[in-house]
Write a protein that binds this DNA or RNA. Structure first.
Lengths: 204, 204
DNA sequence: GGCTAGTTTTACCAAATGGTCAGGATCACG
DNA sequence: CGTGATCCTGACCATTTGGTAAAACTAGCC
């Protein structure tokens, strides 16, 4: 897929610095609201030097998003049809919440893109994502039909996991304004709450 | 609070046209990503004419947000400490979901503002919002202590309601990519799912 | 050391952006 | 109809924005 083009030491250093800086800026202002100057400053490079490594602003954004998709879908892919149903689902919730905790900027980048109409990943949503979700929804439906978990719309079950876990990354400012600034503590509270919630919801 | 300044017919017509256009544009691109030209075009006015009614871009944004806060908080305010606990909470979920359905642009405007660090409503979050949430959290806690609903962290309970209902407005593109374009149908599905979820969660 | 590929900077550009201002058009009301 | 207040426009401005060209510098290898 992404075959490793020959990269010099400097190239590797600078492209990662740029992508990290761009993640910071794009996730905070959205695509249109971000400027190359901001990104260049954050990456400690001059603007023309930025454009030596990436041909355009959009190219940086696309590079970020496509590099992100796997991180985003892997936790769902890992849901094992042959595992114990409740454990699998609760495990998925945990993985998703862990990702929100460890990669809040990535979560916000994704949220920004979706809220703004997903102009750059629309095909992925209707293609790869839909395929994966439909597949896993069938797995969930199978478990429900077999009486291993309580019946519920499997698609909405997946949505609810996304909504509940991503909320703590995307709306972090709001959560902190209400619960206090200790993000770690807030996430611990969230995990305990979500454990209870999904155990009750899924109990057959 | 907001005493009705004398408004001519034309003033009323144009300010509402501007605010509606601005809602459209800001909710789609965020504050920084929106331009006065876009807003002016959407409101069918010239840019200088826009600025005849509002002194600056930021003033429009602030007007929108502050006009929105009540719509946003009212459903929670309406949660009645003297009502039947489960009915009150499920009712709150319904009201919130209704608002997501009826005002998705407002929801996205709010989401954009929060994701981008809430620079313009930070004080409201830590002030009015926190006060209200803390108050209602105490009500919930009272119900739990009295055994009328199952125990759970009341703050996270409120967050979960926000996350689950706003998700369907904010991530509408994603939902439609997976479930299909019939938004009404999707919201109906969501409501049924959320009814089940919260009934199970709250059952004492 | 010298050569080449890779890297960075300086100077620049056209378009877009938020905003101003003076004057002209239009409205409401006596 | 006249007149004062309200409304609207075209021309303009400084700054910012994404992006370019070419020259200057540096790394790494023989």
């Amino acid at each position: 897929m992404t075959q490793p083009k020959p990269q010099t030491r400097i190239q590797k250093k600078n492209t990662t610095a740029i992508l990290d800086a761009a993640l910071e800026v794009f996730s905070q202002h959205g695509y249109r609201g971000a400027t190359l100057d901001q990104i260049a400053r954050a990456a400690d490079l001059s603007k023309p030097n930025l454009l030596y490594y990436f041909p355009s602003k959009e190219a940086i954004h696309v590079a970020l998003l496509s590099g992100l998709m796997d991180t985003w879908l892997d936790p769902l892919r890992a849901l094992d049809p042959d595992g114990k149903p409740v454990d699998e689902i609760i495990g998925y919730v945990h993985r998703k919440l862990q990702i929100s905790r460890a990669y809040p900027r990535e979560s916000r980048l994704f949220a920004n893109e979706i809220i703004q109409g997903a102009p750059r990943i629309h095909e992925v949503l209707g293609g790869e994502l839909k395929t994966l979700v439909d597949e896993k929804a069938r797995v969930l439906q199978g478990w429900m039909d077999a009486g291993q978990i309580a019946p519920a719309d499997p698609h909405h079950l997946i949505f609810s996991i996304w909504a509940l876990t991503q909320h703590y990354a995307d709306f972090d400012v709001q959560v902190r304004a209400i619960l206090g600034p200790d993000t770690g503590r807030n996430f611990d509270g969230a995990q305990a709450y979500l454990d209870v919630l999904f155990n009750k919801l899924l109990a057959p």
